[in-house]
Design a protein around this nucleic acid. Structure first.
Lengths: 200, 200
DNA sequence: GCCGCAAATGGACGCAGTGTCCATAAGAGG
DNA sequence: CCTCTTATGGACACTGCGTCCATTTGCGGC
């Protein structure tokens, strides 16, 4: 009994895994095509051939569903390179981040998800656990390695460095809302490493 | 004929200025008391003794109204000090910003407004024009003065410095959503000025 | 001082989305 | 084969948006 994937099922049960996958796929599609406001339980249910009741069981809010759908689809390289050259690795990683935002269309969903997280505690939780904290930790590990090799001052505050590098990008994305590209990466890293004051 | 401010007016006309003031006051009150989601045209109209129709004439969205109401109420010191001591001035200004966020309860409305701006173009416009761009320009002016006095390198990117200093705070506020206080200000400024790499 | 225009008013409408309920149908496991 | 689990469709009230309308009233012109 092969099922036509597009066919409407009857009323009864369907395997949980199948439903979840269909819902996540539908939510991701809606998010990328029409933006976060289009990710409503109503529309996702219709798009996935599921019922709203089912969605309420697994996700606390449309925002949380959208976040999970987005990260399920962008299961991407989080690994932080360690070639021994801190400056090159920072430029490489930060540049990849900026190009991902700008060239691969991640800018819009990213801004919308972080934005909605300020108003939806469930989305905020999902966002923080799935994305923000892990990435921060990876960067911290890489910087700690550099510090132990003497490439950073002993009294350097690693968290502050992370905040300055990635925070600068988020600042332009969320607060200033101005376009930018990876040409800011080199100055950013150099300022973080050597400061803006004249060398004495 | 002194009017009891709390009394219900009749149906007809009321001075525009009076209505606007009442609406902004009501919106600000709702924003601070119950958060941005409570600032709906319905509720503000009821709270201000105005009608929804009137609100639609002046504000394109509840978000835009909330933003205007917030900044009307927090008409605060934007002036950037210039004592000649760049480090001290940066610490002073950035510290005031962080204390305003944390101690004066600006954290919640601020995050909510920036968040909603990612989904509401009208709010984004109001936010950018009223707050973000003017502040950025003030900081830029102060940094340019320092640069001309030789307190910053000639090839320093002033925008990047602003992004690194304030962006780091917004990063913790919006992206990481972790609490912080003005103890991060000094390390932040020192890292921005002197970098995290060992002095050669 | 009267009158007409401008402007705010209350209240209606349809629409969309949330959150919750129910009886029903159908897969999965014993 | 039978039962239990679980998704299903469809209903409900509620809130908010966005847009109408006729009505009432203040203000400025005459």
């Amino acid at each position: 009994m092969s099922q036509d994937p597009g066919a409407r099922r009857g009323r009864g049960r369907r395997p949980a895994a199948e439903v979840r996958a269909a819902v996540l796929a539908a939510a991701g599609r809606l998010l990328l095509r029409d933006g976060l406001p289009a990710v409503t339980f109503d529309r996702v249910a219709a798009e996935a051939g599921a019922s709203r009741t089912t969605l309420y069981k697994w996700w606390p809010s449309p925002g949380a569903l959208a976040a999970e759908a987005y990260f399920a689809r962008s299961e991407r390289e989080l690994a932080f390179p360690d070639t021994g050259d801190l400056r090159a690795d920072l430029i490489s990683q930060l540049g990849a981040f900026v190009r991902w935002l700008m060239d691969e269309g991640a800018q819009q969903p990213m801004a919308e998800l972080i934005g909605a997280a300020q108003l939806d505690p469930d989305l905020a939780r999902a966002w923080s656990q799935t994305y923000a904290q892990p990435r921060r930790e990876l960067a911290r590990v890489r910087l700690r390695a550099a510090q132990q090799r003497g490439q950073l001052r002993d009294d350097a505050d690693l968290d502050v460095i992370v905040d300055q590098l990635w925070g600068a990008c988020y600042h332009r994305l969320l607060v200033l809302r101005v376009p930018f590209d990876d040409s800011i990466v080199e100055p950013l890293v150099d300022h973080a490493l050597h400061g803006a004051a004249p060398r004495t």
